[in-house]
Design a protein around this nucleic acid. Structure first.
Lengths: 112, 112
DNA sequence: TTGACACATTCCTATATGGACATATATTGT
DNA sequence: ACAATATATGTCCATATAGGAATGTGTCAA
């Protein structure tokens, strides 16, 4: 099987940094596509495609306004991510873990 | 360009449900690969490959113990996800957003 | 009506996946 | 030395990207 489609859930949709940027822009309020294009410095079709993905997982809503289309954030689908990750929140203050890991990896590489 | 590799960051690594399951198993403590294989009901090579991805983004550490290899959780790389998502935590209690979205999508589909 | 504008969709390509399967490597017990 | 065990790696394949470029569709203004 291949990687799960980006439209599978918020986890996959949000793995793409551009899409996170789009949500960041929309967190300030409803915006037309062009504003997002300007904010990201990305080509319009690419932005539209990212917006499609975000729409399909319900992270944004579209509303027609003349020849423009206004997009609005809906952060609800992010909740499962928050819920899942909250379990781990307590435990990321170990200081030597990263170091241990590097040492271990080096050992293995040298062993080859 | 293609989709960013799963080893790019925690966002991408954790988009795969099996890898989240692995972290969930490891949250109970250090475990050998076989335990994870048993817990996930997945074939051993697949588990090893998922563990490789998790190692490369620093979400787990490996420690050799005889012929076994013990894996341990390091939740630190999850922090950026938590930090990013926390911004949105306040705003996911709108009740009619999902409904609006469905209506809008139906309108567009019918228009075709 | 015509043109300009805003946005969406389609086609293309390079790239990476996740699982199935086979095989390599290392360690232990006998 | 050898077999069994634990884990990692490599190969194959179907599938889905993300961006670039071109094109389609709908709406406004003159």
């Amino acid at each position: 099987m291949a990687r799960a489609p980006t439209t599978t859930d918020a986890f996959n949709a949000v793995a793409e940094p551009r899409r996170r940027q789009i949500l960041d822009v929309l967190s300030a309020g409803e915006r037309p596509v062009n504003d997002i294009v300007a904010a990201l410095g990305l080509a319009q079709p690419q932005v539209s495609k990212h917006l499609r993905v975000l729409r399909e997982v319900g992270l944004v809503h579209a509303r027609d306004d003349g020849r423009r289309r206004l997009y609005r954030l809906n952060s609800r689908p992010l909740k499962p991510i928050h819920d899942w990750i909250q379990t781990y929140e307590a435990s990321w203050n170990d200081r030597f873990d990263a170091f241990d890991d590097v040492v271990n990896d080096l050992k293995r590489e040298e062993g080859r």
